[in-house]
Design a binder for these strands. Structure first.
Lengths: 225, 225
DNA sequence: TGCTGATGTATCGATTCGATACATCCAGAC
DNA sequence: GTCTGGATGTATCGAATCGATACATCAGCA
């Protein structure tokens, strides 16, 4: 259960909180709804689901008898497992939501955390946003240093690569600034309550930092895996 | 030797073409000079180096006797292996450079390919740039579709995540457009020759697409691994 | 003197990927 | 009518990769 699967677990719990789902659908959601960030494979998802069930956070229901009442057991229907969040699972997810430790703003986690900001308390949101920002600023600093050190021996294309990379990070920081700003502005004004549906009021709230970048393996790509 | 190691091989060969290096330095370069894209671990790099040596594309030289002439073998000095490109290796790299197949514009490859554009022929550059662009446009299309399908049931933060993701990709496309533009403009005007040092002439050439996004595991992060 | 941190090579277990097998169902072509 | 392709759906396996760590040398510096 390394860095990665931690966030998978979080995402699965979060998605199932909304409604029970099949593994298949879960994977699709993971790779589209949750922002362009990461394509988890079945080889990762199914073991994760099993682990969550073993922990008592999920239960699996075989959705038998889709039509006729008796047809169910008769035909020896295919498995079709629907995963549902248990009370314990919900509680566990709530705990995870409340964490705002450093890894919440690492690349692998931030996008998913952000996707569930709707059910995250305002102060945790703030901490994560600010943590993310300082993380990126550190990164920028390092990029600047290393660029300064090596500028001379680099050719144009490499330089352009560097420049563009930095610009992207800078853009992301600006974004975070807007988001933080708008969180500050909205203070005590809007309840942090779960799943607020305030539908993009006036301007727009700001923006979210592109998680793993605007380019990833193409989550919506239905390469079976 | 899956998708990934293919590009590692390419990058290693390319870096060693410039000058021989230790594995350690190689890794550093991989994670900084080559743009913010990917942190390869030693567990991947060293096996890769061995494979390249086995193929005859590299030779390893133990850089003995750093100071005194005889001190070398005496103390049983530490290994310190310098990798150097062989003629065969150089030839192989040249071949790789000439390829412009679909995977050249996949996320994992594009950044590295771009970093070596200095020694890539103009038409290959064009093909890769255009391939990349259409790849991203496909992606955008899918994102739009999936967003349209699910817009209603998504909360603000999720929506914002989507929006930002798309915007990043759009930005990247614009970038590619500028790059393609400027490649077209410079046609027959500047020799495609290796490592052109035309130092960012007037405006700027355009930009390169952020490879794995403006945010990656932090290549310059000296977490030993 | 001894400490710390950069340089440097190397490996190992755990995780994750990518491909694939297999099965069901439906819609549209023929 | 039935056949075929594609979406849905569960599941596993070998290979690739990661992340951590061990180990060793050397420079600076307190």
């Amino acid at each position: 259960m390394s860095r990665r699967s931690g966030i998978l677990e979080f995402a699965v719990l979060g998605l199932l909180r909304e409604s029970p789902m099949h593994g298949y659908e879960l994977r699709k959601r993971l790779n589209t709804s949750l922002g362009v960030f990461r394509a988890f494979s079945y080889g990762t998802l199914y073991p994760c689901l099993k682990a969550l069930v073993a922990n008592g956070w999920l239960i699996e229901e075989t959705d038998s008898a889709p039509e006729g009442a008796s047809a169910a057991a008769l035909t020896g229907r295919r498995a079709k497992i629907v995963y549902r969040l248990t009370a314990a699972g919900k509680e566990h997810f709530e705990e995870l939501l409340a964490h705002s430790g450093p890894d919440a703003w690492e690349d692998e986690h931030f996008g998913v955390r952000f996707a569930f900001f709707g059910q995250t308390s305002r102060d945790v949101r703030m901490r994560v946003l600010e943590g993310r920002r300082s993380r990126l600023e550190e990164r920028l600093e390092k990029m600047r240093t290393s660029l300064a050190r090596s500028r001379e021996r680099l050719d144009d294309y490499t330089l352009e690569l560097q420049r563009h990379g930095m610009e992207s990070v800078e853009r992301e920081v600006r974004w975070l600034n807007e988001l933080i700003e708008s969180e500050r502005a909205g203070r005590d004004q809007r309840a942090p309550g779960p799943a607020a549906q305030h539908k993009n009021q006036s301007g727009d709230t700001g923006g979210l930092p592109r998680h793993r970048g605007g380019s990833r393996p193409d989550p919506s790509d239905d390469t079976t895996t």
